[in-house]
């Protein structure tokens, strides 16, 4: 699956609904396999006002869509990523009326590959310990735009926002284990402090 995600901070908040309609129409025109365009929910951090996520069958389709998308987003602040998502885990393929969450992160240039691999492996184990994560994917990014050279996208789906804001944040596998890759006070830190944490309502699973 060839994926494209954009977190759009609108210059004019009144443009949210019209822009969302324009993005959905463009996605239909480009035959996106899956589309999620929704306002972000309170608690997002550098997550934009509008979360837009599209899945295509080929890299060519995705890239053509990205080219057509850029003029629609001009004038707004945008963080985003193009990547090839590979299914990591799907505990709830029929998940409906849930929450989709995306984290864009940037691993430091020059980080040794073994550390990156360990960070990725440990992150992929989060759903093993935190059952509120129903579906998930961790992907390396092929092309990034925005405030950082984003290297990874960590996507999850939950039955509701309480799964993200409760168990995900409270479980010790998160704060006492995974977070050391992010914490400037820990010697293992490899991830830049600037993150995009964004989530929105989800009608049906897209991972």
């Amino acid at each position: 699956m060839f994926k494209l995600t954009r977190l759009v901070t609108l210059a004019d908040p009144a443009r949210l609904a019209p822009l969302a309609d324009e993005l959905r129409a463009l996605a239909r025109m480009h035959e996106a396999w899956r589309t999620l365009v929704a306002p972000t929910l309170p608690g997002s951090h550098f997550g934009g006002d509008l979360l837009a996520h599209f899945v295509f069958d080929s890299a060519g389709q995705r890239d053509a869509f990205g080219t057509a998308l850029a003029p629609l987003l001009a004038g707004n602040a945008v963080d985003g990523a193009d990547y090839q998502g590979s299914p990591d885990g799907k505990q709830a393929p029929d998940l409906a009326n849930g929450v989709y969450r995306v984290l864009l992160l940037s691993v430091d240039d020059g980080t040794d590959p073994e550390s990156v691999a360990q960070f990725e492996a440990e992150t992929r184990m989060m759903p093993h310990y935190i059952s509120a994560i129903r579906n998930w994917q961790l992907s390396r990014i092929e092309a990034a735009i925005g405030e950082r050279r984003w290297t990874h996208v960590w996507e999850q789906e939950y039955a509701g926002a309480e799964g993200l804001l409760g168990p995900y944040m409270l479980h010790p596998y998160h704060w006492a284990r995974i977070d050391r890759w992010f914490d400037p006070e820990c010697p293992e830190r490899i991830v830049d402090a600037r993150l995009c944490h964004s989530f929105c309502a989800l009608e049906a699973s897209i991972l």
């Binding site: 168990p167 479980h171 006492a176 914490d183 820990c186």
Partner: peptide, 17 residues
């Protein structure tokens, strides 16, 4: 090293989220 810990008696509770 920096690490975080609880006493064994607290493990079950801290994981019950």
């Amino acid at each position: 090293r920096r690490f975080f810990a609880v006493e064994p008696v607290d493990i079950e509770g801290v994981c019950d989220v």
